[in-house]
Design a protein around this nucleic acid. Structure first.
Lengths: 343, 343
DNA sequence: CCCAGGAATTGAAACGTTTCAGTTATGCCT
DNA sequence: AGGCATAACTGAAACGTTTCAATTCCTGGG
């Protein structure tokens, strides 16, 4: 049977010959204590290796100093492009302020807000970070209705007023289009997500803005909406290649690196070479992207910054401090590699 | 200022017209209570939406019902091949038993066991899951010395007695070699990790066993030890290709998908085609592997099973239940795709 | 010489549970 | 009818903190 720890404030007090209140005051520097007593308490605490119980402290303060985070699990043929850096930067930012991240699974069935409710009602967390939000997101609805602290990585309904940090998705695809235009492309297609994806609609919008800014017409056949998978990306590329030569796009912008890879594979299947015959641009800049053949031009999201920012904002909310900016949009960066072709 | 929750057992007791002890007994079914009272308490609790405070409960029980997990952060040009499925399966397994996973960051500097110590002494967690263990792992040493509950995904020094679950790495590379031998290869190389990697030494050992079992000699030049990166894999392949034709390997086993990708890129650079001119096998089966050109033959680790198992074992330890098997080795699976060539 | 006032310290309550040790009411046996 | 076991329930302690309110001890002013 392991012990864990068991030295309490009482023992420190006894060893230093003072009351537990004094020990608490010394350790938290929350009351004037004579230098001599202070030194004695500190010494006793150090000798015993005393660390205050986070549990007792939390109970008393009614603050768990914990932040909840859950992510959507994806099937094994896909991946979560940002989980690692996002979670890591959140953990770092939280720990710098004495908080910790509690990760929980999103059960496949049942109301999506259930686990949030449970954590909230049992007082296990002081707030939540959400990611992969969408329009009518039931989790946001729930937290908003119950006035519980949270910050989202991603937006939702325009009319819902809640704090979020998001990447300027439209700017990302706009930059991709601008880059392709600069390379001389005029017929640029987009492999987009279904209409129910809010993030997808921002990215599509960026494409449209980019085309409009360049004064290029958009053939409706160039906008392919399909699900987020490699196979879908491949099929979409097949459909684009089936267009008559004068309408066939010479470049394709996609919603994700996964779909970009599908698109490139679609080109190979047709005997074409990505980056030479047709340019392809992805979104996410997963680590693999740079090692693909050809290396993938893609839009990199400032994931670590988002992670640090959402935590910073959430802690302000939890502490009741004013929140200077409730809605933050961070710019992505276009990483140019060979899949978009040579200049 | 958000409220969180605040309905306590006291209010439930008042509403049901009983003492708080009775409420507790009803809710935990830990004492005989008349059916009538039971119903009244349950009704009161439901009407108030009462959920017991996890904090108070933990303090009283001296159990946080929380498990700590930390992972090594990697630079952006690499990735953590198993974080998502591993963390997810752990969270699921833990939650089924009323536990949660606390994730924390490993600071770049300082003793690696510091964050473990902090969490342990403050009573925030009841135990830890470790991953990416190695020989002389200071975290294992620390937890062992302090007799604190933990289970590792991965092994360490033979003489250290601690509970772990690991994938049978040797079996993985052995299967890879067998597969290649079956395809007719006789000169099979391995791109391995530096000697200080314990996991790497198991995987190398499996390669050696596979070669021995097939009665094939191993040319020392076929064993290239190098760091875990795409560039290293590429250079290693270059070195292998530089061997004289009669010593040049026709197949290569690698320690990871990342290095396999490097190896394949090395082949392309030399104007060769992976899977046709030289076979390549990876390790991990990252989601990308199947979309590579050619799709990568690789060893898949049963990550979700490991996650469920380590949690199951840790909870047994925490609860003081007997642990039937302290050292578990799970078999990996070879996923055959085209990078290893046609039969 | 007394007392106000401040600095340093302490006792005890409170946070919300669980559970031990008791108290009441009921029914049964002799 | 009296005693006693049992069932059902309750009061209070305890988990380890923080912090309010109270207490002690000085010092200096009148």
């Amino acid at each position: 049977m392991p012990k864990g720890n068991s030295v309490t404030i009482r023992e420190v007090a006894r060893r230093a010959g003072v009351s537990i209140a004094t020990v608490s005051y010394v350790l938290n520097e929350s009351a004037p204590i004579s230098e001599e007593t202070r030194a004695r308490v500190l010494a006793a605490a150090a000798e015993l290796g005393y660390r205050p119980s986070a549990l007792a402290r939390s109970l008393r303060a009614r603050q768990s100093h914990t932040i909840g985070y859950s992510w959507h699990h994806v099937p094994r043929d896909r991946w979560h492009p940002i989980l690692d850096p996002f979670l890591y930067s959140m953990a770092q930012a939280a720990e710098a302020e004495g908080y910790h991240i509690l990760t929980f699974a999103q059960p496949a069935d049942g109301d999506p807000w259930r686990p949030y409710q449970e954590l909230m009602l049992t007082g296990r967390v002081d707030g939540f970070i959400l990611s992969e939000t969408n329009r009518d997101d039931p989790r946001i609805r729930y937290l908003l209705d119950h006035d519980f602290p949270f910050v989202a990585f991603g937006r939702a309904n325009e009319e819902w007023d809640f704090p979020y940090v998001d990447v300027d998705n439209a700017a990302g695809t706009r930059m991709a289009v601008e880059h392709l235009v600069k390379l001389g492309h005029r017929r640029i297609a987009v492999i987009a997500w279904p209409e129910d994806s809010l993030t997808g609609s921002y990215r599509l919008q960026g494409y449209l803005e980019g085309m409009a800014a360049a004064g290029l017409p958009v053939d409706p056949a160039w906008i392919v909406r399909t699900e987020h998978s490699e196979a879908a990306g491949r099929q979409a590329m097949g459909a684009l290649l089936a267009l008559p030569p004068d309408r066939r796009p010479t470049a394709v912008v996609t919603m994700s690196d996964l779909m970009a890879i599908g698109a490139m594979n679609g080109l190979y299947e047709a005997g074409l070479q990505p980056g030479r015959d047709v340019s392809v641009v992805g979104f996410d800049d997963v680590p693999m992207a740079q090692y693909l053949r050809p290396p993938l031009t893609t839009v990199r999201q400032p994931v670590a910054e988002v992670g640090a920012k959402v935590v910073e904002m959430l802690l302000k909310i939890i502490r009741g401090e004013p929140l200077p900016e409730r809605k933050v949009l961070l710019p992505p960066r276009l990483i140019v590699r060979e899949s978009s072709g040579r200049i």
